[in-house]
């Protein structure tokens, strides 16, 4: 998978959609160290300071039902990767696409589709709170990070590679 990395970007989903519309090939990943306009469902702001893991995947052409299944599977993938790397953490999946630790959100997944008579493009964005030390007051009771739970920094690169590998495997299994 090709990974296009940005130090700072408005939103990895916005960039991935732009690239996808311009023909950039599937499984290209847009990765950012930070986002200034990261968003979740219904345009809600996603807190995206440096340290977290923010990326979007241009998915292969698919139908909308498979895009939905893959979004749900992505939540399982993230939870599994967290569990396998950090045995002290017990992630919980809040279907369809949130991952929580002790009732606080640690990951959000947003899939966006462009649809005419069929699905033209699907982009899956994942925001995972990895190395975030603190959250603003309004998010303190709703969000957490792996760093807060583990008490130390973790490798974004390692976590990203594991997540991407599993998502691609699951996509190939549901698309047969």
């Amino acid at each position: 998978m090709a990974i296009i990395k940005y130090k700072k970007i408005k939103s990895t989903n916005l960039k991935a959609k732009q690239l996808g519309k311009n023909g950039v090939k599937p499984w290209t990943v847009v990765l950012a160290d930070s986002q200034i306009g990261g968003y979740g469902r219904k345009g809600e702001r996603w807190f995206s300071p440096k340290g977290g893991l923010y990326f979007s995947i241009i998915l292969p052409k698919t139908n909308i039902e498979d895009a939905q299944i893959l979004t749900i599977l992505a939540a399982f993938v993230v939870a599994r990767v967290i569990k396998e790397n950090f045995q002290n953490i017990e992630p919980l999946i809040k279907l369809p696409n949130d991952v929580l630790i002790k009732d606080k959100k640690v990951c959000g997944i947003l899939t966006e589709n462009i649809i005419g008579e069929d699905v033209k493009l699907s982009v899956m964005g994942i925001g995972l709170n990895t190395n975030i030390s603190a959250f603003p007051k309004e998010l303190k009771n709703q969000a957490t990070s792996i760093k807060i739970e583990e008490g130390k920094n973790i490798s974004n690169k390692k976590i990203l590679n594991q997540i991407l590998k599993l998502i691609k495997e699951y996509f190939q299994s549901i698309s047969v």
Binding site: K42, I64, E65, T71, T111, N113, I114, I115, E117
Partner: peptide, 14 residues
């Protein structure tokens, strides 16, 4: 924008 199946969907003109 059509919100469906927990995804955001841009509906475009063909």
């Amino acid at each position: 924008i059509l919100f469906s199946m927990k995804m955001e969907n841009e509906i475009i003109a063909e």
